[in-house]
Amino acid sequence: MNWFYLAVAVIFEIAVAISAGNAKGFTNLKWTIATLVSGAIATFFLSLALLSFDVGVGYALWTSISGVGIVVLGSLFFGQHLTFQKILGILLIIGGVVGLRLSGAA
C-alpha cells in the first residue's frame, strides 16, 4: 500500500507544479486554490507513504519521480523542449530510483 500512497502523492505533486505555474504568483485565485489543495493532498499521501519508507528514501522518491513527471508533461503539453541534457537527467534519476528500490529501502 505504501507504493500506492507514494503514487498518489506524486500525482498531486505534479498537479501542484502545474497549478503553481498557472497561479501567476498567486494572483489567479482559481489556480492558487488548486495549488494549495493539491499540495495538501500530496503532503497527506506522502506522510502515509512515509509510514513504510525511510523518510530520506521516501522523500527522494517523491521529489524525483514528480520531477520527471513534470518535465515529461511539460514537453508533451506545454511546449517545453526536451533536450539531450534533460533526457540524460531523467535517465540518471530513474537509475537512482531503481537503485533506491534495489537497496531494499522500501
Rank of each mutant, 00 (worst) to 15 (best):
A15F: 10
V10A: 01
V57H: 07
I70S: 00
W62S: 04
S66C: 07
G79W: 05
L82T: 14
G58E: 03
I94F: 10
S64P: 00
I41H: 05
V8L: 11
V10Y: 02
K30Q: 14
T32I: 12
A60D: 03
L29I: 15
K30E: 12
S52T: 13
L91T: 14
S19C: 11
A40M: 13
V72H: 02
F44C: 09
Q80C: 01
S47I: 11
I41T: 12
A106N: 08
I18N: 01
Y5C: 10
S75G: 15
S103A: 15
T43D: 03
A7T: 13
A15M: 06
T35Y: 02
I41A: 08
I94C: 14
G99V: 08
G67W: 12
V68M: 07
F77H: 06
V98P: 05
G96L: 09
G56F: 09
A20I: 10
A105W: 04
G74D: 08
T27S: 15
A106E: 10
I90N: 02
T32P: 14
T83M: 00
A20T: 13
A9C: 04
L50R: 00
K30W: 14
S19V: 11
G21E: 09
G104R: 05
L61H: 08
K30D: 12
S38K: 04
L61G: 01
G21Y: 05
I70F: 04
T35P: 05
V98T: 12
E13S: 14
S19L: 04
I65Q: 01
I33L: 13
I70A: 00
T27Q: 08
G67A: 13
F12C: 08
L91W: 13
F78P: 01
G99A: 12
V10N: 02
I11G: 08
L92V: 14
L46N: 01
S19P: 07
L6R: 06
G67K: 02
Q85H: 09
F77C: 12
W31P: 00
N2V: 09
G89Y: 09
V97W: 03
L102S: 11
G56V: 14
Q80W: 00
I87C: 11
V8Q: 01
W62G: 00
V37I: 15
F26P: 09
T27L: 13
E13N: 13
L50S: 11
I90F: 09
I94H: 06
G95M: 04
G69W: 08
G89P: 02
S38V: 12
F84H: 03
G58P: 02
I33D: 11
N2D: 13
F44K: 02
G96K: 04
G56S: 09
N22C: 05
G69C: 10
V10I: 14
F12H: 02
A42L: 14
G99D: 06
I41Y: 06
S66D: 10
S38N: 10
V55A: 14
A20E: 05
G67D: 06
K86W: 01
F45Y: 11
I14A: 02
G25S: 10
G67V: 04
